[in-house]
């Protein structure tokens, strides 16, 4: 089992992973962690185990009406007039997505369903002949899409652009790719029938593209 680089033997990585280290202990290892990928990996693995303890707790049904009370706070009516574009910016920044050259969003997505019926379509994300992730399109009055990638390059800024059947191009987000996999989501223009989605590198070169087949 890897134990980091060994320089932190006896130091409180476990307490940090469990969230109980005091400030002095934490400070003692932070400087080392910043320059040691092996110990960062060790801490990440220990944190994964520590957080996993919570998943051992048996589920328990909350009191009647709990769901409604949560939704009343988090999804206030009228939901149909929410401002979409400011949220889009936040969504675009939300999670890094890793992308590799030659990747394409491919798959057959059905025609949009009537608003509000919760129609969801999925498509495999492919690089050449390989499936490397998944695309989800949610067809509501407020349509949006998500991408999940499982492998890719590091440290790349990409711009996501959708193209409508009418040729109109709309940038739906710019985001930083920090690691080899990730997840990203953004709302789509409600009045755009998307025929293509493409991901652009700085300078405009197409990194990946998706052709959305008509339903």
């Amino acid at each position: 089992m890897p134990e980091g680089c060994g320089a932190l033997a006896g130091e409180p990585l476990a307490e940090i992973a469990l969230g109980i280290a005091d400030a002095q202990d934490r400070a003692a290892v932070v400087a080392h962690l910043e320059s040691c990928p092996a110990c960062r990996d060790e801490l990440r693995a220990m944190t994964e185990v520590a957080d996993g303890l919570l998943e051992l707790v048996p589920p328990a049904e909350p009191p009647v009406g709990f769901e409604e009370r949560v939704l009343a706070v988090t999804q206030p009516a009228p939901r149909t007039v929410r401002r979409r574009w400011p949220r889009l910016v936040a969504a675009a920044a939300m999670v890094a997505v890793a992308l590799a050259g030659g990747w394409a969003l491919a798959g057959r997505l059905s025609s949009p369903a009537p608003a509000g019926n919760g129609a969801v379509e999925t498509a495999a994300l492919r690089a050449g002949n390989r499936t490397v992730g998944q695309v989800v399109l949610v067809e509501h009055a407020h349509p949006w899409m998500s991408l999940r990638l499982d492998a890719g390059p590091h440290d790349v800024t990409v711009r996501c652009q959708v193209v409508g059947n009418d040729g109109r191009k709309v940038t739906v987000g710019t985001f930083w790719v920090a690691d080899g996999r990730g997840y990203w989501a953004a709302t789509l223009p409600a009045d755009l029938s998307v025929s293509k989605a493409q991901l652009l590198l700085p300078g405009g070169r197409v990194l990946a593209a998706a052709t959305i087949l008509p339903g």
Partner: peptide
Amino acid sequence: EVLLAGYGQGDPELAVAFVRRFQARVFG
């Protein structure tokens, strides 16, 4: 991850699905 994104963005159907999927675990 998709349900969480929909919940965060105010998608009504996905928000309901998100809360229903996780409420017993969170309450537990």
